Simulated assay, not measured.
Amino acid sequence: MNILVIESSPHKHGSSNLLADQFIKGAKESGHQVTVFDAARADLHPCLGCDFCGMNGPCSQKDDGEKLKKQILDADMMVLVTPLYYFGVCAQLKTVIDRFYSFTGKLDSKGMKTALIVAAWDSNEWTMTEVESYYDTLCRYMNFKNQGKILGTGCGNVPMTQRTGFPRQAYELGRSL
């Protein structure tokens, strides 16, 4: 399977990317091809809502959006990776998701397999409620086929994350595909 991992953390060596690395390790060990798109370092601008694309064409913006679109459409699975920012995905991942607009029809009809990996500082039982609901709604709307979620609470920095079971869970999710 061709898997596209979309990392979005401004902290290249932070907790969410540590979890992504473990997922990637497991997926590769199971024989899958994995590509990483780093949304935090890409030249990617927010959707303007201009409808130039008509939901099925090129975007009016000249940035890494067309490269990302090709990578997504060529993939069998997409993994959305984010730190939790105020109970939602970070702006870098939200920009990626908003840019789905230019190929919504193609993406919706694909029935894309997806997974979500989130790292949060807090460990309250309600910490992941909103981001999980957002992802579930996105899956429902875009006809995505959820393959799993790693909702890493208590993962405020790399040492904290390493002391949790979430790196192992991420690895196991990658291995299970």
Rank of each mutant, 00 (worst) to 15 (best):
V158W: 03
T104C: 01
Q71N: 05
T114Q: 05
N157V: 01
K69P: 00
M55D: 03
E132H: 12
K149C: 11
Y101N: 05
R163E: 14
T104F: 14
Y86Q: 11
S16D: 12
I6D: 00
G65V: 13
E130Y: 14
G152L: 01
Q162I: 12
F166V: 00
K28T: 14
K12G: 13
V131F: 06
N143G: 02
Q147V: 00
G88L: 09
M1E: 02
G174C: 10
H13A: 13
T104I: 13
P58C: 02
Y171A: 03
D76S: 11
P10L: 08
L107V: 03
C155D: 03
L18E: 05
K106R: 12
N17V: 04
K106I: 01
E7L: 04
V5R: 06
D122S: 15
A39M: 10
S15Y: 10
D136W: 01
S30K: 14
Y141H: 06
L173E: 03
A40F: 03
A119G: 07
K113W: 05
D74C: 06
L18R: 09
S30V: 05
A42P: 02
A39I: 08
G152P: 02
F52I: 05
L19T: 07
V118P: 02
G26N: 08
I72N: 01
D98H: 13
D108Q: 15
F103N: 02
D136I: 01
D136G: 00
N157C: 10
K145T: 12
V96P: 01
S9M: 10
G65Q: 02
N157Q: 05
M128D: 09
L151Y: 11
P10Y: 04
F23W: 10
D21T: 09
N124D: 14
C90E: 08
N2C: 08
D38N: 15
S15G: 09
N157Y: 08
R140P: 00
R99S: 01
T82S: 15
A27C: 11
K67A: 13
I117T: 07
T95V: 14
K62N: 10
D122L: 12
D122T: 09
G49I: 11
K113F: 11
N56A: 15
N146M: 08
V89F: 15
K113T: 04
Y85F: 15
